[in-house]
Design a protein around this nucleic acid. Structure first.
Lengths: 107, 107
DNA sequence: TGAATACATGAACACATGCTCAAGTGAGTG
DNA sequence: CACTCACTTGAGCATGTGTTCATGTATTCA
């Protein structure tokens, strides 16, 4: 096994930018409140007030989290009257959450 | 102010403990240095010095990270003389990393 | 128009996190 | 044995993160 950096293998070595992006992505899932929010969105569109109720997180905090998740394009917003409905905007998120669940349950 | 959680749908709602565990798990992947370390381990056993070299992270910092990952049982250590070789100890990690990569590349 | 509802946002604070530096431990070497 | 190597660990520090509180912005309705 070579001690030097290895520009060979397709996955084993990633450039710094990719690693940073990956970390940013996982970090978005690395908070209890956000996990609960995303889980709630697994079932479909939910508006902010309902998210706050279901997750037990204050609406303000929920809103802050939604902003971050929106900026990473993990979720998308749709306004309907006074309500704003959020939904998952990333096919990978559901899969990853379920795999994560699978892990923590029977790891 | 928050309300109570609501035990209903099978996957959409998770209890607080599970959500916390899930978040903890993803948080472990939510750091650039740890991503690089885990990526390096995808190819098999690597000792600490080599990890430090390949990731560009100081050996002390690497060691600190390895400790955390070990406590979460994501990796496992094996001593051989003065070297300590680390390897992935979780079948899900590789899959999740690759899915994450898939996401950040063509998300 | 004015009031009420539903969110968004900025500031501020407490706490968590990652790094470095220095010291400690355990295994090989002379 | 002393000495070095390969890590590990604890302290300290700077930065990041999540929350609350107060305020701002849209939208609906009387």
């Amino acid at each position: 096994m070579p001690a030097e950096p290895d520009p060979q293998s397709p996955l084993a070595t990633v450039d710094e930018h990719t690693a940073a992006q990956l970390a940013e992505f996982f970090r978005a899932l690395g908070d209890t409140s956000r996990v609960r929010i995303l889980m709630a969105l697994l079932s479909g569109e939910v508006h902010v007030g309902a998210l706050a109720e279901r997750t037990g997180v204050s609406m303000s905090a929920v809103s802050h989290h939604l902003r971050g998740l929106r900026q990473l394009r993990l979720i998308r917003a749709r306004r309907d009257g006074r309500n704003v409905f959020y939904s998952l905007d990333d096919t990978h998120v559901a899969t990853l959450l379920e795999q994560g669940l699978d892990h923590v349950r029977h790891g």
